[in-house]
């Protein structure tokens, strides 16, 4: 184990009963919501491994849904997530599933339909102590922990694009903490995930979005 703050040991403040089954699950829900951009019309949540077996007893379903409704990990309304989701007009379904080998025991897959009718998928796992790892985004493999401000973009896989994007960040004095680029095939579409030390302004994100080879860009606050 590396560095600890005293508040990692005495904390977080959360609703029970389990940091991995509730606190981590809330954070996965919050991330999925951020990817959808707003509350989606409907969501199907596939539960894998231990999540599939014990989600009812731990309230993992309530926590995932609470996160999608924008709740924090210490929100006592998480208990009422089903009712609150109904009131918010979110249609939801939980499906115990076997996502296959190589998935962490506490994995959830969100298949969301946005208000605009788009399908968005997010796969993430709760790795313990409330920490999470997002492992897939719309089918692309990623690694996002959500501890830092995060920029996620898709762009054409061609020379110089990353240079242009990081150039915008330099202009806005944003330091990059980590950076990963993924692609499925050469010269098609690449996915890039940047974790930064500073918040990134909407203006900077717009500048990145305006770059020609950039197809889509999203900024996600620590969640």
């Amino acid at each position: 184990m590396s560095e600890y703050s005293c508040f990692d040991i005495i904390g977080p403040v959360m609703v029970g009963p389990s940091s991995s089954h509730t606190a981590g699950a809330v954070r996965l829900g919050r991330f999925a919501r951020a990817i959808a951009g707003e509350l989606p019309q409907q969501v199907e949540i596939l539960l894998h491994g231990s999540f599939a077996k014990t989600y009812k007893g731990h309230g993992t379903d309530l926590a995932l849904l609470g996160g999608m409704l924008g709740m924090e990990t210490d929100d006592v309304r998480i208990r009422d997530s089903y009712r609150l989701a109904d009131e918010a007009g979110l249609r939801y379904q939980f499906v115990p599933a076997d996502l296959g080998d190589g998935y962490h025991a506490n994995t959830a897959k969100f298949v969301m339909t946005t208000a605009a009718g788009e399908t968005k998928t997010v796969v993430g796992c709760s790795v313990g102590g409330g920490k999470v790892l997002i492992t897939e985004l719309d089918g692309f493999p990623v690694e996002i922990e959500g501890m830092y401000p995060t920029i996620i973009d898709t762009h054409l896989d061609q020379p110089g694009v990353i240079h242009c994007i990081t150039g915008v960040l330099m202009a806005y004095q944003v330091n990059i903490a980590t950076m990963k680029v993924f692609r499925q095939e050469k010269h098609t579409v690449a996915y890039m995930v940047l974790e930064t030390d500073q918040e990134v302004t909407a203006e900077a994100i717009e500048k990145i979005a305006a770059l020609e080879p950039v197809l889509q860009v999203k900024f996600i606050k620590p969640f």
Binding site: I10, V13, M14, V15, D74, V76, R79, G129
Partner: peptide
């Protein structure tokens, strides 16, 4: 599912 402080 009440509010607590994880400790640890």
């Amino acid at each position: 599912m009440g509010r607590i402080v994880a400790c640890p």
